[in-house]
Simulated scan of single mutants.
Amino acid sequence: MSFPLIRNRRLRSSHALRNLVRENAVTVHDLIYPLFVTHGRDIKEEISSMPGVYHYSLDRLEEEIREVTELGIQAILLFGVPEHKDAEGSSAYDHNGIVQEATRLIKKWNPELLVIADTCLCQFTDHGHCGVVHYDEQKQRAEVLNDPSLELLVKTAVSQAEAGADIIAPSNMMDGFVYAIRQGLDEAGYEHVPVMSYSVKYASSYYGPFREAAHSTPQFGDRKTYQMDPANSREAIREAESDVAEGADFLMVKPALAYMDVIRMLRDRFDLPLVAYNVSAEYAMIKAAAQNNWINEQAVVMETMVGFKRAGADMIITYFAKDIVKWLKQS
């Protein structure tokens, strides 16, 4: 019998053989774990829409850092929930701000753990937007001003670097933010600190649980004038090209699950390390389905992570990071 000539199933016949020819794999070194720190004492408060994810006060943070370290996770993404908010988000660039204080403590507890500081203003402004807001009397509407926002974002990035952040991760989507922050870091003597740009960040519905966690819901309007339209993919290339030209060291796609085509597009066009952000609602949906016994949580999570890698991501920001490492150790 001459047909079939090609038998692809030959390479699937055993567990060992499947392991041998596997094209993509997830390891602990691919993972970045997001953490939320807040003011107060003795706070370890679970975020209702994100089971297993917590707010930590500084006096409870060390226990989490110890667990992360013992698991072998090498990088965290740090978000701060401040005690004080104002129109310009001054707590974001305060020398004693929550992110700055947490960074100094983490570097004391584990100098080798990479601290990636999210650089934005939305958690720190009383209006919840990622920049300076101006009310235009003539147009009868509020607008987020681009260039004045850049000045505050540079101050924030420099203060985070001064506190010991290893990587600056600006997430604001203002035009020119990578260039402004790169120039500001260099002038302040932090030319060695890389910039992980939220290059392609969509105005997505997948951020709901995060906004609860970060207390960053806009108090009016939305973020569609500065975050990208989910319908657009070619625009993602323009955004990434701008960031490459401005000096970004990493590129990111956020969210990841509904935008794997965009991850693939960036992978095919750019050589910089590429980050996929497995965002809060992606996490919450899996958790909710698993709690109702509708899915196998571990199987679905690991398939999703492999999907990100297959699409071209070099690293993954995910709230599942600790679980993934435990599953990898078990297997």
Rank of each mutant, 00 (worst) to 15 (best):
R7Y: 01
L11I: 15
L11M: 14
R12C: 11
S14R: 10
L17A: 13
T27I: 05
V28D: 08
D30I: 08
F36M: 11
V37S: 03
E45C: 10
E45P: 05
I47W: 02
I47L: 04
S48C: 11
M50D: 02
Y54T: 13
H55Q: 06
S57I: 09
E62C: 12
E63G: 07
E64S: 14
E64Q: 11
E64H: 08
I65V: 13
R66I: 11
V68W: 01
T69L: 05
L71G: 09
G72H: 10
I73S: 09
F79L: 10
G80F: 00
E83T: 15
S90M: 13
S91E: 14
Y93C: 14
N96F: 11
N96A: 13
G97S: 09
I98G: 02
I98Q: 05
I98T: 04
V99Y: 04
V99F: 04
T103W: 03
I106L: 10
W109M: 10
P111Q: 06
L114S: 14
V115I: 12
I116S: 04
I116C: 04
C122T: 06
Q123Y: 05
D126F: 05
D126C: 09
G128L: 07
G128Q: 06
G131C: 08
V132F: 06
V133T: 05
H134N: 15
E137T: 13
E137Q: 15
K139H: 12
R141M: 15
L145R: 13
N146Y: 01
N146L: 04
A157Y: 06
V158S: 06
A163Y: 08
G164L: 13
D166P: 07
A169S: 15
A169P: 10
S171D: 09
M174N: 04
G176W: 01
V178L: 08
I181H: 05
R182K: 15
R182Q: 11
R182D: 12
G184R: 05
E187D: 14
G189P: 08
M196S: 11
V200R: 05
Y206G: 03
H215T: 12
H215A: 13
S216A: 14
G221H: 00
G221Q: 01
D222M: 00
A231Q: 08
N232S: 14
R238C: 11
E239W: 02
E239D: 10
E239M: 05
S242T: 11
V244N: 09
V244I: 14
A245C: 07
L251Q: 09
K254P: 06
V262W: 01
V262C: 06
R264E: 12
R267G: 10
R269N: 12
F270E: 14
F270V: 15
D271G: 14
L272D: 10
P273V: 11
N278I: 01
V279Y: 00
S280I: 03
S280L: 04
A281N: 06
A281F: 00
M285T: 08
I286W: 00
K287N: 04
A289V: 12
W294F: 14
W294G: 15
Q298W: 03
Q298C: 07
Q298F: 06
A299R: 10
V300C: 10
R310M: 05
M315P: 03
M315G: 07
I316H: 02
I317E: 04
T318Y: 00
T318M: 02
F320P: 05
F320W: 09
A321T: 02
A321I: 01
K326A: 10
